[in-house]
Design a protein around this nucleic acid. Sequence first.
DNA 1: CAGGCCCTGCTT
DNA 2: AAGCAGGGCCTG
Length: 274
Amino acid sequence: MPELPEVETVRRYLAASLPGKSITAVDVQLPRLIRNRTAEDFAASLPGCTFTAVARRGKYLSLMLNSPWCLLVHLRMTGRLIYESDTTAPLPPYTRIVFTLNEGRLVYGDVRTFGCLWIVPAAGPTGISGYDSLGPDGLSEDFTADYLWQQVHGSRRLIKALLLDQTCLAGLGNIYADEALFLAGIRPSRRCSRVTRKESQRLYEAIRTVLTEGLENGGTTVFNFIDGSGKEGKNQENLRVYGREGQPCPVCGATIVYKKQGGRGTHYCPVCQK
DNA sequence: CAGGCCCTGCTT
DNA sequence: AAGCAGGGCCTG
């Protein structure tokens, strides 16, 4: 479910609660979520480690430990990481992994169980191709208007496919891609080669805008996103086209269109977006 | 580049 | 009962 603003929202909660706490036990209830270790190795290697920091690149979270290794997590569609100080309460529904800490617990929950966890070196390449090949993070300084233009200019793909390509730009998903293209006035089905430099500049600004807005609103809860403390986001109230098919465009009043593109639900205004 | 697949639950 | 869901990877 979560895209960059949602993952960053989770990161902030975890960064405020985890550092200094140490792992005393790990209960892996669904072993296949652990990708590059056996569940047994995973559960055995973490106790004794203390969290030092929580970092994020794109949609990946790195839970840093006082060791040469760190815990890398991708929430995919429905993953949740929640810190709970009360360890006596019943575990939340769909709990898949429980990290018992010296103070409280860290609970990984996941309805659709697409999430992934890895133990990777804290520095240098991780060997996880999706992570090692990430492009610049959408909110980092490395992501510049010139960079976006370079990517757009040299490509024959459709613009929305480019935005969703994590090796080009890390962090955008289906919702924020549709929202950014709406703000920039560009049809999701436009060829990159037909996007002008000026439009690319507008698109750059639109991407920064939707990501920042999403973050300021604590993320977008369409189905079931919740932050690191279990609260829902408010950004869904802010969406301009996503999930608004059949409703009037907030700018021109035309009916928002829904189409499948590249297998993904795609929303746009047929008048504002050329 | 489209399509299938990993899963479960909710909506039509 | 079928189709849909915000991701990513693998296949043809």
